[in-house]
């Protein structure tokens, strides 16, 4: 455990020196928030502030520091970075998941998601020790989702923009897609998780670029795709990057649509429904061009230490504290 603590301390010092040398401002924003960005697929933790004179207010643990970092960018902070704890509910507890995890998030002004690849490569060159972790060293491998779907599932996504035809392709591949209606994203992920993700090259960090536009998020749209990439190392998702959406109307419509989806889904399941700030889109009236990257630091640390399990990297993982309960995947 002591080794893991020392390793983390060294990694954080290197991350800080990298960004400080490049004039990013390190920020420290709240973990407890009044509202979150609506993301129907990320379950949240809810809690409450109680005071006998002021009254009570619902609060939510952040699943990422995005809301606050974007507010600072809108205020003119310039390039910013943060090392923070983030919280996601309901995900599995085990080898590569812990409901509380550490995230490095950095936003580079004037950059797009392609520039962020170069910046992240420089960061990795800076933090990877000289020996022993060749599979983490840049240059990164690069593949678009469109190319990956062609290569591993023989599907041309541009030809299958409707769920109906994509489901037909999935069935041809032997997948069981139920007849009931499902979203394009769900059918896409059936194919992606069965044929693509397990076969992605693992010898180098892989930037999987240009996610389908149907997977809605706050990355700019570009035709059938989004200016967004994820990085996989050894088959594990480690980073996510956007060319950040700056159009207030697009952000407003995203909020409206995704919040409605979130409320509908969570009313059915009974899980926490966080508030969303109806005026959040207003900060984009004057928002600089920028690209943001989020890196799961516990996973990165695990890979740097040559381990395959977060237990032994995170000092008190929830799975350890719960014992070997049913929810733990060992």
């Amino acid at each position: 455990m002591r080794e893991a603590a020392l390793y983390r301390s060294k990694l954080y010092a290197e991350v800080r020196s990298f960004f400080n040398q490049r004039d990013y401002v390190e920020v420290d924003t709240p973990s407890l928030s009044l509202d979150l960005i609506p993301e129907p697929t990320i379950e949240n933790f809810g809690t409450r502030f109680d005071n006998e004179f002021i009254g009570s207010t619902d609060l939510y643990l952040i699943p990422s520091p995005e809301v606050y970092m974007k507010k600072l960018i809108a205020m003119g902070f310039g390039s910013v970075y943060q090392l923070s704890h983030c919280f996601r509910n309901s995900e599995q507890i085990g080898k590569i998941h812990n409901p509380e995890f550490s995230m490095l998030e950095y936003y580079t002004m004037g950059a797009d998601e392609q520039d962020s690849i170069g910046i992240t490569e420089e960061l990795f060159a800076h933090i990877a020790p000289r020996n022993g972790v060749d599979h983490l060293r840049p240059p990164f491998a690069h593949l678009t989702v469109e190319e990956a779907m062609k290569r591993y599932a023989n599907i041309d996504l541009d030809q299958h923009q409707s769920q109906r035809t994509l489901a037909l392709e999935a069935r041809k591949l032997g997948l069981q897609v139920p007849e009931e209606k499902e979203s394009w994203e769900e059918t896409f992920n059936r194919i992606f998780l069965t044929f693509v993700e397990p076969n992605l090259p693992q010898d180098k960090p892989l930037v999987l670029d240009r996610y389908p536009a149907q997977i809605d998020c706050l990355a700019k749209r570009d035709g059938n795709y989004r200016k967004r990439w994820e990085m996989y190392i050894g088959g594990v998702e480690v980073a996510n990057c956007y060319d950040e959406e700056r159009n207030p109307e697009v952000v407003r419509s995203y909020y409206r649509k995704e919040y409605a989806k979130l409320v509908q889904k969570r009313t059915e399941t009974g899980s926490v429904i966080p508030d969303a700030d109806p005026d959040f889109a207003d900060i984009f009236k004057n928002f600089p061009q920028c690209s943001g990257v989020a890196i799961g630091m516990d996973r990165l640390l695990m890979l740097l230490m040559g381990k395959t399990d977060l237990r032994g990297v995170i000092l008190f993982p929830l799975s350890g504290m719960l014992g070997s309960g049913k929810n733990c995947n060992i």
């Binding site: 998780l193 996610y211 995947n329």
Partner: peptide, 16 residues
Amino acid sequence: IDREFVNPGKGSAFVR
């Protein structure tokens, strides 16, 4: 004999 929950980036919950 083994099951793993997967939440692909910004996607719905799946189980392998």
